[in-house]
Simulated assay, not measured.
Amino acid sequence: MSAVVSASTDVLEEAQIMGEAILQSDVFIDYQQAKQRLTNDEEAQRLISEFNKWKDQYEEVQRFGKYHPDYKTISRHIRSAKREMDMHESVASFKKAEKALETLLNEICAEVAGAVSPTIKVPTGNPHFDNASCSGGCGSGQACGCS
């Protein structure tokens, strides 16, 4: 029993060290800076607010679909608001930094899972990693092309 407790403590200590390394990584620092710039950018916040307003209206219209009298107008406005929001520099920078951090965390999860067992499923949402780390444990009967 003592060996199990010791192994658990070692795993927790290693996880703590890994967490601290992630928090000190360039990827995480870039993410924090991009998030801060986005938070402080009044124009970006206005665009996000505008998009959310149209999104709420769009969700209401979706209940009736194309039969709602304002369906086309609201659909056009939400696409325009999203495009304008996504094209804004601080929003685009934040999304890029967020994606880089997500990729790093997905890679770490795949490595940790692979170290435990090659058959552990790691749902990353990224087909590259889902198939790359797959060793017959994907649950698709190897239809994904894994071996």
Rank of each mutant, 00 (worst) to 15 (best):
N131K: 10
A97D: 04
T124E: 12
L12V: 15
E102M: 02
L47F: 04
V112W: 09
P123D: 10
A143T: 03
E50Y: 06
D26V: 05
R63N: 04
V116G: 01
R76D: 14
M87T: 08
C109V: 15
I108T: 15
G141C: 06
A15I: 11
Y71E: 08
A92V: 10
H68K: 00
E43Q: 03
L38K: 08
V116S: 07
C138E: 13
S8R: 04
E102Y: 01
A81R: 00
S80W: 00
L101K: 03
W54C: 04
D86G: 03
A132Q: 12
A3S: 11
N131C: 09
Y58G: 00
F94G: 09
D86Q: 02
K55F: 01
I74F: 05
F51W: 01
R83H: 09
F64G: 00
I29P: 00
E84W: 02
L12F: 15
R37F: 10
V5R: 12
R79E: 07
Q32F: 04
A92T: 07
E89R: 11
H128Q: 14
K35T: 14
C109Y: 15
C146S: 06
M18H: 13
V5F: 12
H88L: 01
V11T: 10
K96C: 13
K66T: 09
G65P: 01
D70K: 11
F51P: 04
I22L: 11
T39L: 14
A81C: 00
I17Y: 12
T39R: 14
Y58R: 02
I108H: 10
I120W: 06
C109L: 15
Q16T: 15
D41H: 11
S75N: 09
S8W: 02
L12P: 07
E89K: 06
A113H: 11
T9L: 14
K99P: 02
R79S: 12
V11I: 12
G139F: 11
A110F: 14
Q33M: 08
N106V: 05
